[in-house]
Amino acid sequence: MSDTPPQRFSDADIAAVYRAIAERRDMRHFRPDPVAPALLERLLWAAHHAPSVGYMQPWRFIRITDRALRERLHALVEVERCATARALGEREDEFMRLKVEGVREAGEVIVTALADGRERHIFGRRTLPEMDLASVACAIQNMWLAARAEGLGLGWVSIFDPAEVATLLGLPEGARAVAILCIGHVEAFYPRPMLEMEQWAERAPLATVVYENAWGRTGTGPADPA
């Protein structure tokens, strides 16, 4: 009997999935070209088909098409960027030299939020209420991988005060903004994650984050693939 599951994708399809994962980047540099409406629709479709705990589908997407509103959103990001820099202490100057968002330049800006009324959803959240946020993260990752496959860059901006963004965008009580997504055409994708290239941080080896049977116990787990 073959060990190959009958539901397996073709080799080419599998390679494409892993390629999208490997080449996905958190983009900061964009061209101003508009994103075709049909393409944006496909990315939103990908996001909306993410898994969610208890099938609660807690994501909401607010497309920012008003230029003045985008500028106000950028101003909120800038306030938090400066506050984050001060909080970093000795790395303040280093952080301020990083480009951390593309709100003004990207073809599309979409604010992703948690819906209100989430307390009604108990399935899968009784002891882990934060699974609503995990579900939204899955939606963003779906969109990210789809964007990379389509040749578009996506950058996740989390440098903002959620309360200020909620007021700006008229979020109902209980809803919460969790991401400003910058989406658009790029000149090129970074060959490596930008924060690695800027020597801000490095990816930990896989073996250092995989344990066996108990926290901190290493076994014969997987090594990083070649």
Rank of each mutant, 00 (worst) to 15 (best):
M1Y: 05
T4G: 07
P6E: 07
P6H: 02
S10E: 03
D11H: 11
D11G: 15
A12F: 06
D13S: 14
A15E: 04
A16V: 06
V17T: 06
Y18K: 14
I21F: 15
E23F: 03
E23I: 03
R31E: 07
P32Q: 04
P34H: 00
V35Q: 00
V35H: 01
P37Q: 01
P37A: 01
P37W: 01
A38F: 05
A38R: 11
L40D: 01
L40H: 02
E41C: 09
R42I: 02
L44E: 04
W45E: 14
W45Y: 07
H49C: 03
H49Q: 12
S52C: 15
S52Y: 07
S52N: 07
V53E: 15
G54I: 04
Y55E: 06
M56L: 10
Q57W: 02
W59Q: 13
R63P: 10
R63Q: 04
T65G: 13
D66Y: 05
R67E: 12
L69W: 13
E71A: 06
L73R: 12
H74G: 04
E78H: 02
E78Y: 06
R81C: 06
A83P: 13
A83I: 12
T84M: 14
R86F: 04
R86E: 14
R86I: 04
E90Q: 08
E94Q: 10
E94Y: 14
F95Q: 02
M96C: 04
R97K: 15
K99V: 02
V100S: 11
V100C: 02
G102S: 05
R104I: 03
A106T: 01
G107W: 00
A113I: 10
R118M: 06
E119Y: 11
R120A: 11
H121N: 15
I122Q: 09
G124I: 01
L133K: 10
A134S: 15
A134R: 11
V136R: 03
C138D: 09
I140L: 08
Q141I: 02
Q141N: 13
A147Y: 01
A147F: 03
R148H: 05
R148V: 00
A149V: 02
G153I: 02
G153W: 00
W156D: 04
W156R: 06
F160D: 03
D161L: 08
G170Y: 09
E173N: 10
R176Q: 06
A179D: 15
I183G: 00
G184V: 01
H185Y: 06
A188H: 15
Y190G: 04
P191H: 07
P191Y: 05
Q199F: 04
A201I: 09
A204Q: 14
P205I: 07
P205K: 03
V209P: 06
E212I: 12
N213K: 11
A214G: 14
W215H: 07
G216Y: 01
G219F: 10
T220I: 15
T220D: 15
G221K: 09
A223F: 07
